[in-house]
Amino acid sequence: MSERLTALRETIRQILPQVDGVIGLKTGPAGIVAPYLFKPGHPEMLDSLALWPKEPVPDTLKIIQKAYPNARLAIVCRGCEERGVVEMFKHAQVSLENLTLIGLQCVQEEALFCRCAKPYTVHARVTVGSPIAGVPDPLTEAFAAKSQAEKLAFWKEQFQHCIKCYGCRNICPQCFCNVCALEDEKWVETGRLPLPNPSLYHIIRAMHMTAKCVACRECEETCPAGIPLAIHFRLVARDVKEMFHYETGAVIEQKPPQLLTLEEGDYERSGLP
């Protein structure tokens, strides 16, 4: 890990003079890590550069670009974060112009922690570390193998623990709507715990993550109730790939399939009559 840190620090040090800032992680008080904008002229800040735990940096990029649309920025991103930036670009949340992606390849330990199928970047031209293969997601596989009744029981059990903190939505870089369906009392019961069955909150959120979730697993990590939220998203991602030949973050030019028109063959694969 420390080798990667040294390499990353060196990479940023070289890029720093050519840009207005580099988004990365910094160790703060008591060793707690948070996103930070490293600025040229302050390379000493890189002494507290950090790699892990990862943070939702695509969102940091959005915050900064919103205030400074023309800033020349670089961002240290892992595979999931790169996918996040790409998807946010497709939805006009961030700009790829004037943006340098510094790819940070995950190590085995990190990939296992995230049950990550793609722990590597594909677009970044500058990268640190060597890419490794994806790992299986035993949780999702085990869930997929359950019967209908077991699935129902599984989520009943899980969602009764939900404390409606909105953390899964708040931390998600792909959740950027100005008006959120989850806050609309037409769909989700406001002011109530536990959420009634079936949990419209979670099904609606899963629906809205269709072709958007980049499998960064930030939602699971921030969930105080430890609900394995990514299961939904990963299963749907599989369907989206099969039905609409779409994978998040893979091809910058490919439009997300929620856009109106059916492409050639989409309908045939949708399983509808």
Partner: peptide, 28 residues
């Protein structure tokens, strides 16, 4: 989260012994 001396949001703190990267709706 502070951008140019303005509060722009809240992020939980991973690895904190109490909140462990989570927050409730009030904290958020």
């Amino acid at each position: 989260q502070v951008l140019d001396h303005q509060l722009v949001g809240v992020l939980p703190a991973k690895n904190h012994p109490i909140s462990q990267g989570g927050l409730c709706i009030k904290g958020w």
